[in-house]
């Protein structure tokens, strides 16, 4: 369960299985590429950023988002057909949330796109549950003393996304402009906006 699966047995098995399926005429390589491309085209941190911008500008949506993330993001057309449950955790003046998958690399891919390589590294996975403040400081996140830090370890079928705090001085900005401020790392909790 390390971060690099390139030479893993499972990768060889998948390649062999794909070859067999192609040889038997059950699926073509082009079709597999097409499905993967379509999936990735719909998966980007811009999705998560749009969800955050909507929550920042629509209190009722924010309430629904925090109560039932899956249903709320489906209103915006995300996570259709997914069996996973989305839970959005809100950063406030006194709380900071950060997500991880210590067992492997679970990640809200549909809302954040493919995960960064550091998210899958053993260093991040093992350290952030143990010393989140030190890890966050290395990402440049300095939290005021007394901030309650919660680390969400995605050990089952729920996926987590952080709702960052809306920055000061953004009162006049449009939803689209606000979405432009939200970074992938802010959605993971390793950055603030």
């Amino acid at each position: 369960m390390s971060g690099d699966h390139t030479d893993a047995t499972i990768a060889r098995r998948v390649r062999r299985l794909e070859t067999l399926l192609e040889e038997k005429g059950l699926v073509t390589g082009e079709k597999v590429d097409e499905v993967i491309d379509a999936f990735l085209a719909e998966s980007s941190p811009a999705n998560g950023a749009r969800v955050v911008a909507r929550a920042w500008t629509d209190e009722a949506f924010k309430s629904r988002l925090l109560r039932d993330g899956t249903a709320a993001v489906r209103e915006l057309g995300y996570m259709d057909g997914s069996y996973q449950r989305l839970r959005v955790v809100e950063n406030t003046a006194t709380t900071h949330n950060v997500i991880v998958c210590t067992l492997c690399s679970c990640y809200p891919l549909r809302l954040l796109g493919p995960s960064p390589s550091w998210y899958k590294s053993e260093a991040y996975r093992s350290r952030v549950v143990r010393e989140p403040r030190a890890v966050l400081a290395e990402f440049g996140v300095e939290l005021p003393p007394g901030t309650q830090v919660t680390v969400w370890d995605s050990s089952a079928e729920s996926r987590y996304m952080v709702l960052p705090r809306r920055p000061e001085g953004t009162a006049g900005m449009s939803e689209e402009e606000l979405a432009g401020l939200v970074t992938r790392n802010a959605l993971i909790g390793t950055a603030v906006v």
């Binding site: 549950v129 989140p132 830090v149 919660t150 370890d153 079928e157 729920s158």
Partner: peptide, 24 residues
């Protein structure tokens, strides 16, 4: 499955953060 919250000091003997895990 339950979201279960642990105190860092219960897991590691130190620290003031929480860790939440989803457990069967």
């Amino acid at each position: 499955i339950y979201a279960v919250r642990f105190e860092a000091r219960d897991l590691w003997g130190e620290g003031d953060h929480h860790v939440v895990l989803d457990l069967w």
